[in-house]
Design a binder for these strands. Structure first.
Lengths: 89, 89
DNA sequence: TAAATACATTGAAAGTTTTAAATATATAAA
DNA sequence: TTTATATATTTAAAACTTTCAATGTATTTA
């Protein structure tokens, strides 16, 4: 993993709201309803949407559309690579 | 490690220049001469100073003054905690 | 097919970060 | 003790990020 990729992932992790979204996902089998996340984080819906996009763009989570909702899963491969890259740098 | 701390460290890691500084340190036994880093990164000296400060403030590196220069060491304890906190979240 | 729901996109304001010029301070060397 | 060197701080401009209101699009339900 090159420095630009490490930078991008670190940036994606550098926000409490996004960390809360990630934690919420993990607690809910990768399922997030955007509207529920809004209530939890006291953020407007477009803000949640924006944060989720950052996580997707960093390739940290994978997005699957299911009807009107989305399900997400942690991209374990990228996650592991990131952690390995950090220790090696 | 709480979310605010994870956020701070992630932010500190979310910049290619800071990652390069960290890598440089690791390759040079934790020694950085600010002026050399300037050349390496083609950044002005106050910028390097600023970036190093961010790493110190995130508690990722420890700073020791040696004469006119500084030596640094990776704060292994915090580094390990960070990685652990990420996998657990 | 009309209304409701879930989420995305656009655009703009407010906040934060990055950068460097100018300047300050601490230490070393002459 | 003057001069040079290494790094820090202040300040301000430019770039980027966060937030949300308004609006758009896709899907489900009535």
């Amino acid at each position: 993993m090159n420095l630009k990729q490490i930078e991008k992932i670190s940036k994606a992790l550098g926000d409490v709201n996004r960390l809360k979204i990630l934690r919420y996902m993990q607690k809910h089998n990768g399922k997030v309803e955007c509207t529920q996340a809004c209530k939890l984080l006291t953020l407007a819906q477009p803000s949640i949407s924006h944060h989720i996009k950052k996580l997707v763009e960093a390739d940290l989570i994978l997005q699957h559309k299911v009807g009107r909702n989305y399900n997400y899963s942690l991209n374990q491969k990228v996650w592991d690579k990131y952690q390995k890259s950090l220790t090696e740098l």
